[in-house]
């Protein structure tokens, strides 16, 4: 039994007359403990896809089947890690995670629940910041809190909505490793939504590109069968990696061109202009500072 299946799913917004579907005829099957990455351009409908997967939005057509339940409402079995952290600013790190833990395990004794929450805080290396408020944390730390909150619900499936796109490259690399590490130790189904091809190749078992919207749908999928654990430092030197990256990039750029052609856009040639040369002729003494009249 596959944890999540989408069958000819479409979704559109706005009035019925003249409605254009954001996503059209999406078909997806994710296997147990599989790590799937969905990549797409911005505006392709990635966040809408997350909403569908999590059950936050209902499809206008087709079905989203999660564990045999069709179009089920959202719940903690499908943990979502949001792009914008979505932490409660009035709660501390502990409070934010505890809010989720309390809801998912209402019968757990207080001491046990506290230990449970602290385990996840420790897992994302935030124990020193346990009682800090979100506004006192850096972006990377906030996303870690969000990750810990999602993990502490012990969901059957994780949906990661561009979790690292707001972070700088170094922090992103660290968090990618952390997520991978956690996943290796505690396997579960993950759907990662991203716009970063490198990230997708590093982390996923399968990459599914999303075509350009509106009426976006899934394109040709790429299987990544590179052995795990994948080492970031040596990964880029592998020919398999280089080939995959080239293939995916070509495919994505091709999608972009196709979309442009479909919209009937003409390529405009840029006029051949070069900036004028305002530098002083050589041989004259250079002024150290400009006269006010000259600068004006």
């Amino acid at each position: 039994m596959n944890p999540i299946v989408m069958e000819n799913t479409s979704i559109g917004f706005g009035p019925e007359y003249g409605r254009v579907n954001v996503l059209q005829d999406i078909n997806l099957e994710v296997k147990e403990n599989e790590f799937v990455a969905v990549i797409g351009f911005s505006g392709a409908g990635k966040s809408t896809l997350v909403s569908l997967l999590a059950g936050l939005e209902q499809p206008t057509d087709g079905k989203v089947i999660f564990k045999d339940k069709v179009n089920a409402p959202p719940g903690p079995e499908r943990g979502v890690m949001f792009q914008s952290y979505s932490l409660m600013p009035w709660l501390s790190v502990f409070g934010n995670i505890d809010l989720a833990a309390k809801q998912v395990f209402p019968k757990m004794p207080v001491a046990e629940r506290q230990a449970h929450v602290e385990k996840y805080i420790d897992m994302v290396n935030l124990t020193p910041a346990r009682d800090k408020k979100p506004h006192e944390l850096s972006g990377g730390m906030r996303q870690r809190v969000s990750l810990a909150r999602t993990l502490c619900m012990q969901p059957q499936m994780l949906i990661l909505d561009e979790p690292l796109s707001a972070l700088d490259a170094l922090t992103r690399a660290v968090l990618q490793d952390e997520i991978l590490n956690i996943w290796e130790n505690d396997k579960r189904t993950i759907v990662l939504i991203t716009n970063d091809v490198d990230e997708a190749i590093l982390m996923a078992d399968r990459i599914i590109p999303l075509t350009i919207g509106p009426e976006a749908t899934f394109g040709k999928e790429f299987i990544i069968d590179m052995p795990r654990p994948r080492v970031r430092q040596t990964l880029t030197e592998q020919p398999a990696y280089q080939k995959l990256k080239a293939d995916i990039s070509t495919y994505m750029i091709g999608l972009n061109d196709e979309a442009k052609a479909a919209r009937g856009e003409n390529t405009l040639t840029c006029p051949d202009v070069a900036p004028k040369d305002f530098s002083l002729p050589s041989g004259r003494p250079q002024l150290k500072w400009k006269m006010p009249s000259q600068s004006a």
Binding site: A54, P74, P76
Partner: peptide, 23 residues
Amino acid sequence: DHMNVAKVLRLGFWSRLFKIIIP
């Protein structure tokens, strides 16, 4: 986003009110 978190957590009306909306 906070309301989405509340939905994912399946917070009931009152805990949604007291834990998310009022604060």
